[in-house]
Design a protein around this nucleic acid. Sequence first.
DNA 1: ACCACTTTGTCCTATGGTCAAACAAAACCG
DNA 2: CGGTTTTGTTTGACCATAGGACAAAGTGGT
Lengths: 400, 400
Amino acid sequence: MADGEAAQQGARQSTLRASNLGLVLRTVCAADRPPSRADVAARTGMTRATAARLVDALVAGGLLAEGERDPLPRRGRPGTPLLAGGRVAALGLQVDAGLLAARVLDLRGRVLAERLEDGDWVGSEPGPTLERLGRLAATVLAGVPAGVRLAGAGLALPGIVDAGRGVLLRAPNLGWHDVAPAAVLAPSLPAGLHPLLGNEADLAARTVAETAPGRAGPHRDFLYVSGQIGVGGAVVLDGQVMRGSAGWAGEVGHVCVDPAGPACRCGSTGCLEQYAGRHALLAAAGLPRDASPEVLLDNAAAGDPRAGAALDGARRALAIALAGVLNVLDIPTVVLGGHLGRLAAVLRPGLEDDLAVRVLSARWRRPRIEAAGADAAPAATGAALHTLAGVLADPVGWLD
Amino acid sequence: MADGEAAQQGARQSTLRASNLGLVLRTVCAADRPPSRADVAARTGMTRATAARLVDALVAGGLLAEGERDPLPRRGRPGTPLLAGGRVAALGLQVDAGLLAARVLDLRGRVLAERLEDGDWVGSEPGPTLERLGRLAATVLAGVPAGVRLAGAGLALPGIVDAGRGVLLRAPNLGWHDVAPAAVLAPSLPAGLHPLLGNEADLAARTVAETAPGRAGPHRDFLYVSGQIGVGGAVVLDGQVMRGSAGWAGEVGHVCVDPAGPACRCGSTGCLEQYAGRHALLAAAGLPRDASPEVLLDNAAAGDPRAGAALDGARRALAIALAGVLNVLDIPTVVLGGHLGRLAAVLRPGLEDDLAVRVLSARWRRPRIEAAGADAAPAATGAALHTLAGVLADPVGWLD
DNA sequence: ACCACTTTGTCCTATGGTCAAACAAAACCG
DNA sequence: CGGTTTTGTTTGACCATAGGACAAAGTGGT
């Protein structure tokens, strides 16, 4: 022996059942209209008998629910529509430089309760800020209908996170480092609910990859670029957020755009963040750092040369950085979030043209730029989705 | 219904068996010493009865073989050591700017036969060159011992490949585009042996990720940078070569290092390839384009300022490009292949220092530079490994 | 030389999951 | 109101693994 790692475990019949239970659950979640047992059987290739048995188990466990028969005039016996269980949910939390958020999402993707709190937490003390978030979470949880089971919680943070140990290693925008939020939040949360930590951009990207638990979004492969004070990012391949070998992937904000460019806080020079980050962008346009992206757009439209130059610089920097990533990853789409999403309409045309030149595979498939949705706290939703994804992956543990 | 895609297929009992057969086969391949049936059972968690039954099926099908008992004085009844089958093999082919290669690799990772042919195929006609490769393949296959079953063939090409359609879209170094090699090679190969196309860097990277079929190499997550006339690359995550959404991932050679840099053949400016590609590097050092990397090293050691400056420029460019990739992908290791591998000793110290500054996570885990092995045609081996990986993934089809 | 001991490999039955086909149920249609 | 169609359920058969008993092939001690 003395063999390095233990091999994968052999599959047994209970594995088969577990795998098929998960498949049935995900099939129902992925459908755009509530399917019947027979639909599930057809889509998975299982017999109706098998599919029905698994569905029954999931319904009994509360992970699936039978809906009302819709009176569609079709031939044959009408099927009972199946929905994801509405009484299983997860809590999503987010701390951002200008926002605290708490949201409860159920397996159907419905927001059962939410609360956002604006503010300025740049340079704040971690303890009090997290206590504030804890109180927000408690009030949100109090507003959740009775009988809803919480499957877990997630916390989105704007920085580098060690999810395994539950530690925020470094969040430059907040000025935090080496923070373990679980201990601070615990008193406000139900016993046993330990929030899973995640990077803000990773979790925000998840809301683009899946619109509801198990339901695929419009793109399966894309780069998500999150415009915050700095610039974060996440790579999504085949609907999965790429974690990287330690879970720190996606830091597109520190790709070097020009080695002779301005020094970055990270120690390097000419990082994308120094051109397209919110602070950098507004400073270049001669605006205060708390100005909104819309003011920048208005100024540029009114002919302000500094605003125009700032947008131009951001566009050029994005083109160089994104082209590099797209060349290495062979991804067709870039989704802009945060303030970059709100500037997308102006950036898109020039950016797409630049990418068409710099991306090697553009002649076969021209790269596209998209804007993310308008939600102020997508990462809070993403944190909840991330937790619920655990239920979809292995439902056996949630069948009581 | 009207649901977009068909869901995944449900697992049945034959799926269970297929999955466990594959697991047993991979467990034997991954072991560093031939395991017994009982070892396989212990490592997979299956009962000895089950493991033995699956092993027997694989032995009967030729995918596993029983080895000679080695006289190790241990207590208890000695087990029969299990080896990967030596009579199942794959053909790996490679076309490169300066090399044609054909190699036959068996499931144990042994080279059963090989043949390399140096030359200069830059700007050659695809047809005659591929015919030459076909003759090379035929002679190699003639040298394979009788009774060896060919599981397939792979062909490594230095360019962008559409593996599904079997078309080389564009190989700038060769000057080829829109070539379908299967038709040209078919007359030289046994009937039914259609080579699977792959990118040179992707397949070379595979030889780093696995030293023999199913046996993990020294690194599980790394960026492979292939120094050829230009610069290619491949991303390996968790031992798997990342394909990207269309299979074109890894083009690190065209990451922009300096927007004000020299124009690149790809249409962009300041690509890494313009600093670290073999032609660019040798030209900057005032050497002819067919000079060897060792001459460059000798000149630099002798104090030639042009050689020193060329190496310095390559190192700086590599630092900027690699830092960007490492930031986005969170990968700890870079493996240098091709001429860059032969320059690794000189590049490593400065490069590692530069990356420590530019990579965001370096303070927790310092990026490492490694050199690939000295094989002249790693991609040929990789092409064979790629084909054999298909056997390991689903052995059922190969059990006669 | 012999016997206990240990480990490997095999045989047999039980369990539990899916499949296939028949059957019951609930609608529509003429 | 009966034929048709589709859904959902029931039943027995099949098959892969689990578990335990047993045979096989060595070592080590007396």
